[in-house]
Design a protein around this nucleic acid. Structure first.
Lengths: 211, 211
DNA sequence: TCAAACTTGTTTATTTTATGACAAGCGATG
DNA sequence: CATCGCTTGTCATAAAATAAACAAGTTTGA
């Protein structure tokens, strides 16, 4: 119902888009359409917020009719830019690093983990799901040869910023940081800090204040 | 400088409190005081936001003087309710579950993981850092005997809601959910959904739109 | 002692996000 | 065909979060 298709998408709407996409992709195949209130109820938000979110994408859906699940999925993949393959590497093959490398759930978004790097010589040479663990010194060449654009940091916190610098020096454009240290990067690099302690501390606060 | 000490704390301020606390606890011992601009610069926010956040806690700090690191830490621990031990269990000993169980980083907040549960008989009986992996059937009794208040869900997404229900049925008051399914719980239970895909999808969006 | 360069506390304004209200459209039922 | 109950699109308003501005205090050094 609108023309330009270019409306500003609020920051928080993007986060919800990710949740919507996840939810829709987990849905059984037999579900071909869904209403805003059904979906919002399960996700735990208000239907009007969901419709407002979709409104920023321009008019799809028609009044009186539910949303088509497959169309929603493809539209959201488009917006979130996960229609084509994006290659990743991971640095730090500790417990969390290994767990993420073993997790195959990102592949359905076209996110492909190509290599794991560590400084521990006892880990170098091993494989995780056919993904080789390599020495950190070989990272630069690997990034260029394999057109890697996303780096995942799973090092101890005191190596996080150094690792981040190393990644950006070698041309990485997106960093997903799981260490407990907030890392900073140049303006042309996107950083997503995912400090797990924040989640549990927030839970602790809410446990003692909301109830 | 204020009296009642009771001001509303915005939701997002709480999340930043968690980041502040993390940052301060990672600091070397020799750093005994810090200014809002130093701290904000490293964390990647504006100094005025940091001061505004602390303002909600009532007046501490004095004009002209930097913040005392130890005082900040203890005040933040107080607000986030991590001054005393809180006991946790974890359900689902897959890769991510094992990684979290191996991660000792939460203990410094008094968060103590007491048991891991799984349905896989090949895992039951093993230990992770002295934490026993037990059969899911024994969970209810374990919760009551050990005064567990936090449950961590690391199951596949199609078992997440069932696990959540099981936990709440046995009196768990806080749930930290790492599955890709958003789980819902009764009003007297706090849920923190930590779907990892949201982070990477947000990163993908920003990579393709902010740059 | 005085001034300059810092610091934080607090209020006010701006921006961003969430909610509410309602028109408009579809589909089934009688 | 008319109506009732459902649906989404859209705009206006309310609420929340962020940023700016500045007063007021401390420290340092000339």
């Amino acid at each position: 119902m609108n023309d330009g298709d270019f409306r500003h998408i609020p920051q928080f709407t993007v986060l919800r888009f990710a949740r919507y996409l996840n939810f829709l992709m987990n849905l059984p195949d037999v579900v071909s359409e869904i209403s805003s209130s059904e979906m919002a109820g399960i996700i735990g938000i208000k239907p009007t917020q969901l419709r407002q979110d979709f409104f920023t994408l321009g008019g799809f859906g028609r009044q009186g009719k539910k949303y088509n699940v497959q169309f929603l999925i493809s539209r959201l993949r488009e917006v979130l830019a996960v229609t084509e393959e994006q290659r990743m590497i991971l640095i730090g093959a500790g417990h969390l690093g290994q767990a993420l490398a073993n997790y195959a759930g990102f592949e359905r978004f076209g996110l492909s983990l190509r290599g794991v790097f560590d400084v521990n010589p006892r880990l170098v040479g091993l494989k995780i799901r056919d993904i080789p663990i390599m020495d950190l010194d070989s990272m630069g060449a690997f990034i260029q040869r394999n057109e890697i654009i996303i780096g995942i940091i799973c090092t101890p916190h005191d190596y996080a910023q150094t690792t981040c610098d190393l990644l950006t020096d070698h041309g990485i454009k997106a960093i997903w940081n799981f260490s407990s240290e907030h890392v900073l990067a140049p303006d042309d690099v996107v950083v997503q800090n995912e400090n797990l302690s924040v989640g549990i501390l927030n839970l602790s606060y809410r446990l003692n204040n909301e109830l």
